[in-house]
Nucleic acid binder design. Structure first.
Lengths: 90, 90
DNA sequence: ACTATATTTTTAGAAATATCGAAATATGTT
DNA sequence: AACATATTTCGATATTTCTAAAAATATAGT
């Protein structure tokens, strides 16, 4: 959760969700969100480390793609916490 | 999200969910989780600040209770992020 | 008023995180 | 090999967060 708790990383993740399963190069994230390369690289590495996104190299460019399983796990976890005896949580 | 991203705060929140809607005094959280009072107070203040829990004074003791609306909002947010064009997210 | 209990505020040091420029690496092109 | 492009690693600084002891506050009982 901590990884998505950071504004910049959440913005990156949301952007990757928006662009869809084809993914997008790091450079385009950089341009779209206006984040310096070194900063971006750091945040991307953290998102990769928890499995929220993945990186695939295609020649010189690295495509980033949102990965849903970890997010689904997170939602399930929150739901099980939340709904512990609370019927109004769907 | 950042508030639940901290291990200690998540433990506090989970404990409050577990004890249910009657809530529990700060002192009991302290004993149950073994967190020094000042540290605990700090984390509780943060959870209160985002509306994840509430505090009610009953004479000398302060009862803490988990609040679900904010958590539900969070789940909805994640679900809308996740399910943006991804059918396998329920 | 004094004492005890419950909790917070203050304060401060340590650890973690964020930011970003500059240099380094990886890959492809000429 | 030399060069260009894409991205990362390094290094340094700034900021935030975590932790907890000590002092302060709030409430109640004697």
């Amino acid at each position: 959760m901590a990884e998505l708790g950071n504004t910049t990383r959440l913005a990156i993740f949301r952007y990757l969700v928006k662009v869809g399963p084809a993914g997008v190069p790091v450079g385009q994230i950089q341009k779209a969100l206006g984040i310096p390369g070194s900063t971006l690289s750091h945040h991307i590495a953290r998102l990769v480390s928890v499995g929220l996104i993945k990186k695939d190299r295609v020649s010189r460019t690295l495509y980033c793609t949102a990965q849903y399983p970890v997010l689904e796990e997170l939602i399930d976890f929150l739901q099980s916490e939340c709904c512990a005896g609370v019927p109004e949580c769907s």
